[in-house]
Computed example of a mutant assay.
Amino acid sequence: MYSDDDAAALYDLLNPWDPARSPDNAFYDELVLAAPTVLDVGCGTGAMLHRAREQGHTGRLVGLDPDRPSLARARRRSDIEWVDGRAADAAWSGEFDLATMTSHAFQCLVGDEELRASLAAIRAALRPGGRFAFETRHPQARAWLEWNPANAVELTDGAGRALRIWHEVESADDAVVTFNSTTAAPDGTVLHRDRSSLRFLAPEALDYLLAEAGFTVEARYGDWHRGPVTATSREIVTVAVRA
């Protein structure tokens, strides 16, 4: 069996936080290191906040995530606050200078009610003038077309097991894409499978929801080098300010 704990460890192997190699990591690192207090919403295994401490951040760092196996890995560092919960359930009030949602975590907010409640809770957690930085995949790029077994990844995990990992789209309707992620042995034996849904919002829809929640868009980028959003952009990177 391949447990949820194994899956959390595999995530770190597949997605190491390395600002020197990943421009998205570098983008967030710059923001985090400049902010006295940071709330990372959907922190996963905590790699970004771990890195911030290693780089000398001395302020308050808080990671929030509902996935307990991921939080168990995050808690390897005890000098950061780790909270089990969803964005919509957050109850902080004016305590943070920066809130982040990295690794396309914003797209996990699929339903209108959950999305609006999450934005309201994040805004409430920020001080007046506090910033909320996140990214989503631009729907025009249709990234889900690449999520198929032909693009499977083969690797060896930390326990020495050879693995094959792929995604398969189940449906793509009304800006919501539902897909299955499969981890298997080389012979095809399925070890672990997750079903997920992601919401793909265009810039105009994002701006409407942010304004409705009490945010003003400070900056909008189409790539991790702070280029503009264009007809070929694959990302929508947003920095919003609590109005």
Results as ranks from 00 to 15, higher is better:
Thr156Asn: 05
Leu209Ile: 10
Ala117Tyr: 00
Gly130His: 04
Val83Met: 14
Tyr28Ala: 08
Glu154His: 05
Arg199Pro: 03
Phe200Glu: 00
Thr100Pro: 01
Val239Lys: 04
Thr238Pro: 01
Ser78Cys: 11
Leu14Ser: 10
Ala117Glu: 02
Leu209Trp: 11
Ala88Met: 13
Gln107Val: 09
Arg86Trp: 13
Gly44His: 07
Trp144His: 08
Ile165Phe: 10
Leu31Gly: 08
Leu61Cys: 07
Leu109Asp: 12
Trp144Ile: 03
Ala219Val: 11
Ser118His: 01
Gly63Pro: 02
Cys43Leu: 05
Ile122Asn: 03
Gln140Asn: 14
Glu54His: 13
Ser233Ile: 03
Met1Gly: 09
His138Gln: 09
Pro139His: 03
Asp112Ala: 12
Ser3Cys: 03
Gly214Leu: 00
Ala47Cys: 08
Gly63Lys: 07
Pro36Asn: 11
Asp157Val: 10
Ser78Thr: 15
Thr45Gln: 10
Arg161Gly: 06
Ser233Lys: 09
Ala240Gln: 03
Gly111Asp: 15
Ser196Tyr: 14
Met101Arg: 03
Arg123Met: 01
Asp84Lys: 10
Asp4Phe: 11
Arg51Ala: 13
Asp5Pro: 04
Val239Arg: 02
His225Phe: 05
Leu13Thr: 15
Pro69Cys: 04
Leu49Gln: 03
Thr100Gly: 03
Gly85Tyr: 00
Thr232Leu: 02
Trp166Arg: 10
Ala52Arg: 07
Met101Pro: 02
Gly63Gln: 04
Ala90Met: 12
Arg77Tyr: 06
Ser70Asp: 09
Ala184Lys: 06
Gln107Phe: 01
Val241Thr: 02
Arg131Ser: 12
Asn151Gly: 11
Arg21Asn: 12
Arg234Lys: 13
Val190Gly: 03
Leu210Asp: 07
Arg86Glu: 10
Glu218Leu: 15
Gly85Met: 04
Cys43Asn: 05
Ala243Cys: 14
Thr178Phe: 06
His104Tyr: 14
Leu209Ala: 14
Leu209Phe: 08
Ala211Val: 11
Glu212Cys: 09
Trp166Leu: 11
